[in-house]
């Protein structure tokens, strides 16, 4: 299997304007992933599939990863003039690192029998810039898996033929696989006749009658 650096160079020569970043991996399992900017993802994906030395015709695994906003505490040395003389102090400052949602694709080649090449896409943030291009037009196997990522992580895939929730039901609001998700008190709250009966009873018999 080619190294991520080689693949990066080949893809960048094939796709005009493409910029890939190699994301290193701490374990020995694979040498690193390729980070692609959203707007170039489909062109890069097609190049990976068509390239005669790669021929990554099979997208095995598609999944999301949630990286929440982080608050880093950093120490800075500052100089202040205290009582006429300059002294050095240590100050702690907080720095917010914005989080993002990441979609990870594991690509293999059935024709050449090699892989994986790991492709990563990142959203702008976790709230309002959560759109990424869908790679379903390139690999159909992403169809259900991207729906799952949309359902559980809340990434909107532009160009997906049928972007609906996969596992949770349609009216469900939240995205359960996010790290800051908390269970709702009641999953399927539906107003019952119960409250109406109570209200009617109160109206008829005065406040405090049927509490």
């Amino acid at each position: 299997m080619l190294s991520p650096e080689t693949i990066k160079a080949q893809v960048e020569s094939l796709v005009p304007g493409a910029e890939l970043v190699v994301v290193p991996n701490g374990s020995t399992d694979n040498p690193g992933a390729l980070l692609v900017r959203g707007e170039q993802a489909v062109a890069v994906a097609r190049a990976l599939r068509e390239h005669p030395a790669l021929r990554l015709d099979y997208a095995s695994n598609v999944t999301g990863v949630d990286w929440p906003d982080q608050v880093l505490r950093e120490k800075h040395r500052i100089k202040l003039i205290v009582e006429g003389e300059e002294r050095e102090f240590e100050e702690e400052r907080e720095r917010r690192v914005p989080g993002y949602l990441e979609v990870v694709y594991h690509l293999y080649s059935m024709a050449l029998g090699h892989g994986p090449v790991v492709l990563r896409l990142r959203t702008g943030n976790r709230n309002d810039q959560v759109s990424l291009p869908s790679l379903t037009p390139v690999w159909r196997s992403c169809e259900l898996q991207e729906r799952e990522v949309f359902d559980l992580f809340g990434v909107r895939f532009e160009g997906h033929p049928d972007l609906r929730r996969l596992l949770m039901w349609e009216d469900y609001q939240d995205h359960p696989m996010r790290k800051d998700y908390s269970d709702p008190d009641d999953y399927e709250y539906e107003p019952t006749a119960h409250d109406r009966v109570l209200a009617r009873s109160r109206a008829r018999q005065g406040e405090g009658a049927a509490s």
Binding site: N25, G26, S27, D29, N30, N61, T63, V104, H106, P116
Partner: peptide, 19 residues
């Protein structure tokens, strides 16, 4: 240690992978 891995086997129903 921090890092990632993808393991897959030929399960009776197809490729079963854990990421």
């Amino acid at each position: 240690k921090p890092g990632e891995a993808y393991g897959r086997i030929e399960a009776p129903k197809g490729e079963l992978g854990f990421y």
